[in-house]
């Protein structure tokens, strides 16, 4: 039970996990086991993890149903795209664009969150959908973004940067989730009236979760612009929001671990469905319906993997028998 601040054994386990996966990826890529095609898939999975986890913060942890996530991804993508085109087509350019995207997303996020988060459930979903589309239409009509034709960019982002960003996103969102503000968000999800009665400023925490989620969606967008050559406004319609939603629902609303697993699993399934892209959408649709009917909690429900829980499980089993 003795925990000495940040230097406890669980955090050491986590650090080790991060390094081992990095080493593994590095080795496999160096050895040529992961070729360029698979690497591109992996990078897509990384970006999807960031998107799914950040949407899960809003939907799963805080219970606020947003369908506007693609709008924030669009902001990040275009911020990076514009900087790459006009300032520097390099990793530095992407990072600068990412920073600008984050700032814009915070401002837009606050503008969207203030009025809409007073709405509940399905009304909120439609309002955020509307905002997401407005963001996209504004970007579509700007000169600097080259309108509907989109922007052709160079690939400057490599996998280590995406890996670092994925880890950063997970650390921030998990740490947020397991803290007093995170518990406040969970309370809002469970029962807004009761949360308010227990002294929680529900508006403040809803906005906090929404803006934090928007920021990471924007980060994912910037990374996307840095490694996929082309960005166009019609890549960020609310269909994209729904694609992210599928990941969250599949993994389990409220489980960050679930979102990560869902992004990986669906990423690999997509490789196999690549040659039947028309069937892919049919399968997505059926999957959503079936999950909701037969397993509404998704893969993991609200369960979360943690070393401390694993440790407790192992030790208690050893002690009882």
């Amino acid at each position: 039970m003795k925990e000495r601040g940040i230097f406890n054994k669980y955090n050491a386990f986590w650090l080790a996990t991060i390094l081992v996966i990095f080493g593994l990826l590095f080795g496999l890529i160096a050895a040529g086991v992961i070729n360029q095609v698979y690497l591109t898939v992996l990078m897509g999975i990384g970006i999807n993890i960031i998107l799914a986890v950040s949407l899960n913060l809003i939907i799963g942890l805080t219970g606020q149903f947003s369908l506007g996530h693609a709008g924030f991804m669009c902001i990040g993508a275009y911020a990076a795209g514009v900087v790459m085109k006009n300032v520097s087509s390099s990793v530095g350019g992407v990072l600068l664009g990412m920073l600008i995207g984050i700032l814009i997303s915070v401002v837009v996020g606050l503008l969207v969150a203030g009025p809409t988060l007073r709405l509940r459930g399905d009304y909120l979903a439609i309002a955020t959908l509307g905002f997401g589309e407005i963001i996209r239409i504004v970007i579509l009509n700007m000169n600097i973004t080259n309108g509907a034709a989109g922007m052709v960019l160079q690939k400057v982002v490599d996998w280590p940067l995406i890996y670092i960003m994925v880890v950063l996103t997970l650390v921030v969102i998990l740490n947020f989730g397991r803290s007093a503000p995170g518990r406040a968000c969970l309370a809002i999800r469970e029962d807004e009236v009761a949360a308010e009665a227990m002294g929680i400023n529900t508006t403040k925490y809803k906005i906090m979760a929404f803006v934090l989620g928007a920021v990471f969606a924007s980060v994912a967008g910037s990374l996307y612009a840095g490694c996929y050559y082309v960005i166009k406004p019609d890549m960020f319609t609310f269909n994209k929001s729904i694609e992210i939603l599928v990941l969250v629902v599949f993994g389990g609303m409220g489980s960050i671990t679930g979102s990560v697993i869902a992004a990986i699993v669906i990423g690999f399934i997509n490789i196999f469905l690549q040659s039947f892209s028309d069937i892919r959408m049919i399968v997505y649709g059926l999957a959503l319906v079936c999950i909701m009917i037969f397993r509404p909690g998704g893969l993991l429900g609200t369960k979360e993997f943690s070393y401390s829980a694993l440790y407790k499980k192992l030790t208690s089993k050893g002690a009882s028998k």
Partner: peptide
Amino acid sequence: IRLFKNLTVLDNVKIAMSKNIKYGA
């Protein structure tokens, strides 16, 4: 009864301590 049903008993109590919590996000 309006408990936070899917959270632990302990978390239900902790959530109500926001007055006491002196750290931010």
